[in-house]
């Protein structure tokens, strides 16, 4: 079983997203260790980029803080390599194609593997253009995680599911990250449609910002991604580690019970 498959085994997975280097890499290192210790099942590590088309304002600003703070993909990979022995939750890199092209796809695959990265998500790389990256990752035993959306057709869903590995990232709404206003398709109906096509674990993300939203998402999927809500919560702390811990821990502990079926919170 891969480390990503383990993250979904026997429970609903809590997945967090942080922009690496926001506001600096030392803070990111502290937070990743903290999230791991608090039982987060999978850590999405964002590569900051100037034009993150799939992201809303919260993650774009986090990326800008990280870029101003001097974060680069090279430094992020070096950090992940250093942290690898200290963190048990699998790390998944999420970044835009330009950053990867600039780094060099093969070098990126090599260095990610060396840094102990388990999988990669590229939100602006649709699967029909992903062959090169997908095979580079596969050769190095890393998962290539693809996204599907409520308007993805069944035919395309099948094709995506064939290429994807690890889990399928189900974007919950037509919109960008952090966008919770756009209700759209009922989650259960959406994930049932996806499940009829693939046996990969499904993670729901985009707009999960409260225990109640997390509960609804967990009812429909196998894992829940929380990004913008966590970043907004931590942003005022800056690099104050004590403040970060004080805010992050209760937030995570409020989310976790709502994910698991059979807990008092599930209605």
């Amino acid at each position: 079983m891969t480390s990503i498959a383990q993250a979904f085994a026997g429970k609903k997975a809590l997945i967090t997203y942080l922009a690496a280097g926001d506001p600096d890499l030392e803070t990111t290192a502290f937070l990743l260790k903290l999230l791991d210790r608090e039982g987060v099942d999978l850590l999405e590590v964002g590569i900051p980029f100037s034009d993150p088309l799939a992201d809303g304002p919260v993650i774009q600003q986090a990326g800008q803080r990280a870029l101003s703070g001097g974060a680069t993909l090279k430094k992020i990979l070096a950090l992940l390599k250093t942290l690898a022995p200290e963190i048990s939750a699998p790390r998944v890199l999420m970044g835009y194609m330009n950053s990867l092209i600039a780094y060099g796809l093969e070098a990126f695959a090599d260095d990610s593997a060396a840094a102990g990265v388990s999988g990669v998500i590229v939100p602006d790389l649709p699967f029909h253009q992903s062959e090169e990256l997908a095979s580079l990752l596969k050769e190095r035993d890393m998962d290539f995680i693809l996204m599907v959306t409520p308007n993805t057709t069944d035919k395309r869903l099948k094709a995506i599911a064939e290429k994807a590995s690890g889990f399928l990232y189900c974007v919950s709404t037509l919109g960008v990250t952090g966008d919770s206003a756009n209700a759209g398709t009922p989650l259960k109906e959406y994930t049932d449609r996806v499940r009829s096509i693939t046996s990969l674990p499904l993670a729901l993300g985009f707009g999960v910002n409260s225990p109640e939203k997390a509960r609804l998402a967990a009812e429909a999927a196998d894992g829940v991604v929380v990004g913008s809500a966590l970043i907004s919560l931590l942003e005022p702390c800056g690099t104050n580690l004590e403040c970060l811990e004080k805010k992050a821990v209760p937030f995570l502990r409020s989310l976790q019970p709502s994910l698991q079926p059979g807990s008092g919170l599930v209605k």
Partner: peptide
Amino acid sequence: GGQYVPETLIP
């Protein structure tokens, strides 16, 4: 060339 956009836009 190509299409470097989120999946939502593919349809």
